[in-house]
């Protein structure tokens, strides 16, 4: 399974159930919803779609679609906030 992890040079702040991610290298601002912020925190360590799926279920008691997690990770990769863990 492909693992993803946060890139360095990012800072984050939580404001009213939203997460604001500042990329200090590319000078971008990215806003995530509450569940996105939860996944973002988990991504401080290497995660797979499956591990995030289980973490969400454990924390929220919600069965989140794996496609949605996959799409979320693809977005973060596209915006240069996460990369494949080596």
């Amino acid at each position: 399974m492909v693992q993803f992890v946060q890139k360095k040079n990012v800072a984050q702040i939580e404001v009213e159930n939203e997460w604001i991610i500042l990329d200090t290298e590319q000078y971008t601002v990215t806003r995530l919803n509450d569940l996105g912020g939860f996944c973002w925190q988990k991504l401080r360590e290497a995660q797979t779609v499956d591990s995030l799926y289980k973490a969400i279920d454990l924390e929220y008691g919600v069965e989140c679609e794996k496609d949605a997690i996959d799409h979320f990770l693809a977005d973060l990769t596209k915006y240069g906030l996460i990369s494949h863990a080596v």
Binding site: N17, E18, L22, Q26, Y27, T28, V29, T30, R31, L32, N33, D34, L35, G36, E59, Y60, G61, V62, F72, D75, L76, Y79
Partner: peptide, 15 residues
């Protein structure tokens, strides 16, 4: 467990 709350809401460069 937390309440059921719910995505990348927006992404933009800093000007």
């Amino acid at each position: 467990k937390k309440e059921k709350a719910s995505l990348v809401l927006s992404h933009q460069p800093i000007k």
